[in-house]
Amino acid sequence: MTKVKITVGAINKDAGSSRRYKTGGWRTMKPEVDLEKCVSCFKCFDYCPDGAIKKTDEGIEYDLDYCKGCGICAKECPVEAIVMVKEEK
């Protein structure tokens, strides 16, 4: 973890600095999207608790630095374009 010098009153001015911590390491299952099937409804984007899905022109893209592998996206995808596969370590 990044060490920083303490601030007065523990006020943290480094907004969004949680991104330094990569929660992707927690994952045991990994999502894979079939962009051929994806209809860009972006339900997965809205439901993802971790903001680990980005919208793209082709559909979506995962930010595996943060995906915890919860599987909500795969379960909620209305066209079954996402599958969860075992994470290779």
Binding site: V8, G9, I11
Partner: peptide, 27 residues
């Protein structure tokens, strides 16, 4: 030292782990 201001967003009342807590108290 800072204020709650959307132009410069900061977090007040952070969770202080044992790594930092004692230094905050000493300060």
């Amino acid at each position: 030292h800072g204020r709650l201001d959307p132009d410069e967003p900061s977090t007040f009342g952070s969770f202080g782990t044992p790594e930092y807590y004692q230094e905050f108290k000493q300060a």
